[in-house]
Design a binder for these strands. Structure first.
Lengths: 365, 365
DNA sequence: CATGTTTTTGATACCGCTACCAATCCTTTG
DNA sequence: CAAAGGATTGGTAGCGGTATCAAAAACATG
């Protein structure tokens, strides 16, 4: 299940083909009355070409609907960078968006992308690393949950294969990373709930094997503390990012004598499970219980009510990961610290949150 | 958002690179004491090479850990086929699996894949087709729901771009298609429910704009008829493949005076919605109500209980679509009828189905 | 064993593009 | 105004394979 994708960008007017008899760089050169070399320069946006010449060439390119051959290009160009995208049972909505983003960026950056699935139950870390080496992978992208697998990161490091961790909570300073500020996002969501009027807010933690989980919890605690609200242990349940674990956690929290008026789950799957439990318990969402999630996967808008959640810019993170890796591969000197990119998230309000119902003791307005 | 993926297969021991100074075909030739041409033949599995020679070459390849350059290969090879994968808001789980499958097959078939998203609200059909032509796309793959968009298929046809419809219910005989037998799958699922002892089986139809919907409904009716069970209109609700529509449909069916003991939804999203409504109504699934879906998307195993459903071999369908298209592009003569491939589906039993509770009038055993 | 065939292998010529360096051209300056 | 110097442009030589056809080797046959 390995594939190597040689990519080039179309929007850039660059691409390849060779089907019937597509125009080549020579055709363009002849049409424009210049040498192929000049055309090559124009295509690659080199600054040396005089404006007048560039325009002639551009015109010829347009006239012939010319698109350079990716194959010839990399062949002639020398350097051919190949990066791997190692994934292991992520949520499929995450994967598809991640794939589309990284594919596109790989295209623009002119590198090959090898998409590889790793079944952590069947293959040892050594085997995967060896496989990558055999495949001549220059660097790898590690989307969650792999980005937090220290053993893998170490093995990669030992093998001398640079990596970029995506969406990890704690990135070692020597490992490049792209992420959002999980802590702050959770902090903001919690503040949002507090602003809505909630003062008993439940929290479902994420899988402890992913470092982002702790960050999200930290954000929740921080907001509570800042607002002077007590942080009650009984309102916090351990989850594992799966729907199943969310079911258990929500059940536990809602079975409390004095249940919270809002539950903030560490991801959408668990939030969806919370909604299911609420419904099963006869609670209206958001009328009786506000539920919000994290990630903004497609599940968030699939269920009803649609989830208020934190949107992670998955596509952008994927592109950024490719860029960072390529940059590291090309330029990086031994001494340089690894790049840590932090992208913006967004709090998306949908239909699963509302102000809490008035407490009985408070009476009407 | 366009990308062109030049692909080659690694597992095949073919690939490309050029990073530091990877071995070339010439290195292998020297090592094996033969000409580069012979090495090329071995790599491509041509039969003419004598066994002894082939072994020498294989040994050299292994010794040098040689992997051919995809770039050089297509460049030299002449023909460079490029196929497009046009998608429009499919479920993301469907997309990711489809992507992985088609990417891999494109790799093996040695063709470039251009993944293109079409936002049907922003771009006209003419514009998309023109864009594909400008991108020199030789043929396109149309996963659902695009495969049923007659206007698009026509426009493509007029533009002379071959297409393959994936998972469509009614494929025009002149359009290549890859699908499963939706009718028979639904028939089998319905029979399964009947065998379990259900005799009042509800059905939620899919979006009428997708031809597979009708096929699934046909299968349901056929199984009922065959078993001599009456087909009751009130047990059938119209849905649109969305979770929301499933909510409404399920609500409608379960509000009946004499509700069914099982509901067969035309896809997993609507089945999940049905489970949600059942739970909200205090019904146990599968104790009080059996629910089953269709597609086996990730949602089927996300929710609880996990859904009994029909598994569509999405990955295999994607690969098949690429193969069919490539075959059509390479070999097809004008007269030949388009290929219609029908792949196997599978009925996956999980936890959402069970025999109906005994009817009160029947008493205990 | 010479000769005709069929197989297998090799030599040559590019595929379309870019690296590298030489050739022009246009300025700038003494 | 000529020489010097920088800015542009062009020529040449591959990158790593494969198509094509010729050469060599192996097998058949009389």
């Amino acid at each position: 299940m390995t594939k190597i994708l040689k990519v080039s960008t179309l929007s850039d007017s660059r691409s390849s083909r060779r089907q019937r008899n597509a125009p080549t760089i020579n055709d363009v050169a002849r049409e424009a009355g210049v040498s192929p070399m000049t055309v090559s320069r124009v295509i690659n946006g080199e600054q040396v070409v005089r404006a007048a010449t560039r325009e002639k060439v551009q015109a010829a390119i347009t006239a012939l609907n010319y698109a350079p051959s990716a194959a010839a290009r990399t062949l002639a160009g020398g350097e051919e960078t190949r990066i791997g995208l190692l994934y292991s049972n992520p949520s499929s909505s995450y994967l598809s968006e991640f794939l589309v983003g990284s594919l596109d960026q790989a295209s623009r950056s002119g590198v090959d992308l090898v998409v590889e699935k790793w079944d952590d139950e069947e293959t040892s870390i050594e085997a995967v690393v060896a496989h990558l080496q055999r495949g001549r992978i220059d660097g790898v992208i590690l989307p969650p949950p792999l980005c937090d697998l220290a053993a893998l990161v170490d093995a990669l490091d030992r093998a001398g294969i640079p990596a970029v961790a995506v969406a990890t909570g704690r990135a070692p300073s020597d490992l490049a990373a792209v992420s959002i500020d999980d802590r702050h996002a959770a902090y903001e969501m919690t503040r949002h709930l507090i602003a809505l009027g909630h003062d008993r807010i439940g929290f479902i933690k994420g899988n402890p094997n992913q470092s982002a989980s702790a960050k999200r919890f930290e954000g929740y605690v921080a907001a509570l503390t800042e607002a002077g609200l007590p942080m009650r242990d009984e309102l916090v349940a351990q989850g594992y990012f799966t729907y199943r674990s969310g079911l258990d956690a929500a059940e536990h929290i809602l079975a409390l004598a004095d249940p919270p008026t809002a539950i903030f789950a560490s991801n959408d799957d668990m939030a969806a499970a919370t909604v299911a439990i609420a419904h099963r318990s006869g609670l209206d969402v958001p009328g009786d219980l506000t539920v919000c999630g994290f990630d903004d996967t497609s599940l968030a808008t699939t269920i009803w009510p649609e989830l208020t959640t934190i949107r992670q810019p998955i596509n952008a993170m994927a592109r950024a990961a490719v860029e960072v890796l390529v940059r590291q591969l090309k330029g990086r000197r031994k001494g340089d610290a690894a790049e840590h990119l932090v992208l913006d998230y967004a709090l998306i309000r949908r239909q699963s949150d509302a102000a809490p119902r008035m407490r009985p003791r408070l009476g009407g307005r």
